[in-house]
Write a protein that binds this DNA or RNA. Structure first.
Lengths: 144, 144
DNA sequence: GTAATCTTTAGAGTTAACTCTAAGTCAATA
DNA sequence: TATTGACTTAGAGTTAACTCTAAAGATTAC
């Protein structure tokens, strides 16, 4: 299948502006153009956009993503670099997920605390609840 | 305990510049000053910084964090808003973690693929591995 | 065929979150 | 007392990642 920039924008949720910007930054080197200059996206290009979304989602910068795409274009001699990059991203992602789990515990504590506070009409009083105090101890050491 | 801005910077990993910036943006309304204008951070302030780090970590903007701090300062009449905010953050965080799990599956596939590609000296050949093809089917529908 | 819509370009503007500078003040040490 | 290093301020500068503009050309629907 072939897609115009507008169709790709709808499909991916990115704007046409953003897609042109990505191309300008070297992230979409495989997109074709018609004789009159219009971009024509293939399913392969959509696949690249999904990969870009994944790498952005795990915290890579556009510059880092471009590096990967450049390595890809250089062919099999850059296989080790690409493997190394993915290994690093996995390590980074693992730390990120660990952090998010800790954050989730804090947020859950807050939800319990504020649910009780709303019920009692007072944050002060909710803080006196023994179970909440115990949860706070497990999760943090703070008081906000 | 009392801390200078430099000590807090070391403790938190933020720079003194960033701490002043947070204060200017209204994120640290409880920090005291000496007669001569030096900031004096308390353990309570460190606690607020930890909360700020958590909220930033789950994707809140400084503006959103300031809103929470402002509500906190307004007292018990804003308890429902604060509860609502934390409920929204939890929902957001859940989606985020789900996304990260999907990203992790893709990254793991890439690691398997590139490990094999490095062994064989060819990405093309690695793609012919049936197990990798099956993993790819499970994880995506793409080829990058 | 014409009106409406889509796409093109180069380049300027925006936003969030820092990050730094300059000129001066303060505190601790030799 | 002099030096060293941390701290103060207002405000300018930076960076990443968009986001938009304007004017013109291309495509689609009727």
């Amino acid at each position: 299948m072939r897609y115009s920039i507008g169709q790709v924008a709808k499909k991916t949720g990115l704007t046409a502006h953003t897609l042109r910007y990505y191309e300008k930054e070297g992230l979409l080197p495989f997109v074709q153009k018609t004789g009159s200059g219009l971009r024509v996206f293939s399913d392969t290009d959509i696949g690249w956009l999904e990969m870009i979304e994944c790498l952005k989602g795990v915290g890579m910068s556009l510059k880092g993503i471009k590096q990967y795409i450049d390595w890809f274009r250089e062919g099999d001699e850059t296989l080790p670099q690409r493997l190394e990059m993915f290994l690093q991203q996995r390590a980074h992602l693992e730390k990120q997920m660990e952090q998010l789990n800790k954050h989730m515990a804090k947020i859950n504590y807050k939800i319990h605390l504020y649910t009780e506070a709303v019920r009692l009409g007072s944050l002060e009083k909710a803080h006196q609840n023994k179970e909440l105090q115990a949860e706070q101890q497990r999760v943090y050491g703070d008081m906000f």
